[in-house]
Structures are given as structure tokens and as C-alpha cells.
Write a protein that binds this DNA or RNA. Structure first.
Lengths: 115, 115
DNA sequence: CGAATACTTCGCCATGTAGTGAAGTATCTG
DNA sequence: CAGATACTTCACTACATGGCGAAGTATTCG
């Protein structure tokens, strides 16, 4: 799986509020499938699908002991996602005036080189 | 729109590689719709949908001058997304954490079996 | 053994996303 | 005015996601 695909799956996994809640819960401590399901109003099969998506994205690992499955956080892919976002830091730290000035300069430049 | 919805839309917008490429392009300079479309193998209507999704997520703004539309980056929602991810930094940075220790053990194990 | 527990899988439906070709609306340009 | 340019919208197909109830598989308890 390449970088683009990993980012696809990671961001996709993070789009759902139930999945973000599951990750936030796992940040505190490992949990079983039924413990993860308890706070949510949805049925187990839906939770299973969410766990499948989180697993595919590499954000959790699962291990079975007896009949209970322990889910653990494995947040490395989130780091990659965050590093992708970090590129835009300068935009949200720069004042709007400077940003607009920069944009307008670029636009003028672009028009000139077009002709 | 509340925080959860904004995160939903932001992460959803970032799942698609075409949209991430568009954002990366806009990071360098503002662009028209057709300029944004040029490097991609898909047709204009598909680009329009991507722009609609980026717009709904608040990641771009569009302004029409004559018949050309200038697209600008508006990355504030990305900051919120990044701040959500920052919570997990300790997991990928703290070597004393038991989960990280577990992950590293797994990795060492994997490397050993790779050789 | 039989029942309860903890998941897991199955089949189904509704909705959203990603793409297409075709047609429509403005706005320049010759 | 006619045609090219720059989008925009429409109608449609295909597939993934998110949910359900029902049924299945192990494991543990009484």
C-alpha cells in the first residue's frame, strides 16, 4: 500500500464521528468490542464494520483471548495524516491581508506569463 | 454546523487523492477551475463535484470574474482537523507508553522475520 | 449437557461519492 | 452576430458506507 492509499484510508476512517469516538476511547485504555459498543446507540454489526474500517486503515489492532477481543490503538497512520496537514500551517498562521496580497501578486504574475 | 460535522466534512474532503492534489496545487497559488482540472485525467463535471465538496468543507472559496472562476485556499478547517489529531501525538512520540512499547515489540518481531 | 455471552457473518436497504456524456449559460473574440 | 471559451447542471451508472434484523460460531458458566 502506497502513501496515497494509506492517506485515503486514514482520512476516510476519521470521517465518521462514531469511529473518532472509538479512537478517543482507546486513547484512554484498551477495550473489548462490547465495551466499545456500549456508549453507542447502534447495534453490534455496525460497530463491527467500523472496527473493520479502522483495522484496514491500520489505526487499531485486535487480539482474541477466549471469547473476548481486545482492541488496541495503533496511531502511526494518524501521524502521516498530520504530517500531510502540517504543510498548510503557514496559511492558517499568516494574516489574511498578507495572504490576499500574496494571492493577488501571484495572479498578476500568472496573467502576465499567460500572454 | 457543529465541531463534529465540520470534522466529518473536512476529513471526508481529504480522503480523495484528486482533492488532496487540488489543495496542494492551491497551496502554491490560486487557480482557475480549468487550471485545476488540467493535470487530472478526469472530466470537468467530476472536478466540479470535487470543488463542491471542498467548498462545503470550507477548504476553498470561489470568486467569479468574467467567465473565469478563481479558486483560493481557505485552510482553517484543516487546522481543526490537525488539532484533533494532535491528541494522539504522545502515542507516537512517547517510548515509555505501553502501547508504543507493544507496537515496537511487534515491529522488531516483524523485522526479525523479514530478514 | 444446555444456556448465556461475545463476537461474527449474512442478506438487505438507503444514501453518498465518483465518474460519464450531453446539454445549458454566460462571457469574450473575431 | 457567430463561434469559442469557461464553467455549470442534468441524468445516469457503479460502487462504498452505514445501518438493520437474523442467524451462526466459539467459549464459558451452571
Amino acid at each position: 500500500m502506497n502513501q496515497a492509499e494509506r492517506l485515503d484510508r486514514t482520512f476516510a476512517a476519521l470521517t465518521d464521528p462514531t469511529r473518532r469516538a472509538i479512537l478517543a476511547r482507546l486513547e484512554r485504555a484498551d477495550a473489548s468490542v462490547s465495551e466499545l459498543a456500549k456508549p453507542h446507540a447502534i447495534k453490534l454489526p455496525a460497530i463491527m464494520k467500523h472496527l473493520g474500517i479502522l483495522d484496514d486503515a491500520g489505526l487499531i489492532t485486535r487480539s482474541k483471548t477466549g471469547r473476548t477481543v481486545t482492541v488496541r490503538l495503533s496511531p502511526k497512520p494518524m501521524r502521516e495524516a498530520m504530517e500531510w496537514l502540517r504543510r498548510y500551517e503557514r496559511f492558517w498562521n499568516t494574516s489574511l491581508d498578507r495572504l490576499t496580497a500574496y494571492a493577488e501578486a501571484k495572479e498578476t504574475q500568472a496573467r502576465r506569463s499567460d500572454k
